[in-house]
Design a protein around this nucleic acid. Structure first.
Lengths: 139, 139
DNA sequence: CTAAACCCCGTAGTTATCTACAGGGTCAAG
DNA sequence: CTTGACCCTGTAGATAACTACGGGGTTTAG
């Protein structure tokens, strides 16, 4: 067995065939050769490519960024620094998101703690606080 | 001046009129009375309501959740505990997101540090690692 | 030989949160 | 009384990353 149908490939990597076609349409996966009947016949290397995509997604890269990573990976003249730059930019972006979430969490935790936890909500401190706080950006 | 046109209200809270109509369509803001010409005429309290929405968004609530918060806030029989529960659930959700992001950040940081930072990317450790790592979920 | 399970293409729908038109009416200033 | 800034409705587009569907052909197991 030298090649895989789209279904076999999808099964192998744990996504569904439609997603693979979608990746193809987005130029993340090259168009594979076709069988006589027009079926996509994937080389085994396609498994690696899709795993790369999935792993990069887990690391927080968007498909657009993954496309960039893939073309860097394919270009023999790419310098490591280019790749590292993308990685570092993504780290910075993730850090920023974390900061924002931490700020939201702190603010909400304070609210939840202030709430008496029982009694009519008419004077619930959470609702009051949401109503009246002028955006205290802690980030 | 007892009421505001949609443009005045929008200006007052710093969003644009289209968003207010959108909130109305989503039942986050009640339909206001209309002028003879059919213009929306908002009571001053609409300012508070939209500020509530904005503040809750900053705290990480989705519009759907905000709708829930608003109806809790309006229902005189609501108990504080119901509100606190929503807040705590949101704190948990945010914590989870933070954890995921922390894991992504750690993994990516390791990659970026391992990368020599120069030289051909053919054997760039980042690309290699993305290719071969079997999803090491650290979360 | 037939029925299930697969594949094809193209288009449309999903979720969230708006934003942008198009094609009209209205109001205030000069 | 005209011009520009506003308002109306309804529909479509933006973004991400798929998912579903309709209406077909193909392959394979029994």
């Amino acid at each position: 067995m030298k090649s895989l149908t789209i279904g076999q490939l999808a099964h192998e990597v744990g996504i569904n065939p439609e997603s693979i076609r979608f990746y193809e349409a987005q130029n993340l996966v090259p168009e594979p050769p076709r069988s006589l009947a027009g079926y996509r016949m994937y080389p085994l290397s396609a498994v690696l490519r899709i795993r790369f995509i999935k792993r990069a997604q887990e690391l927080g890269f968007s498909l657009k960024e993954i496309k960039e990573l893939l073309s860097l990976a394919e270009d023999r003249t790419t310098d490591c620094a280019d790749v590292r730059e993308l990685a570092q930019a993504k780290v910075a972006e993730i850090s920023q998101k974390i900061q924002t979430l931490e700020a939201m969490k702190r603010a909400l935790t304070v609210l939840a703690e202030t709430c008496p936890g029982t009694g009519p909500a008419v004077n619930c401190s959470i609702l009051e606080s949401i109503s009246s706080d002028e955006a205290r950006h802690e980030n």
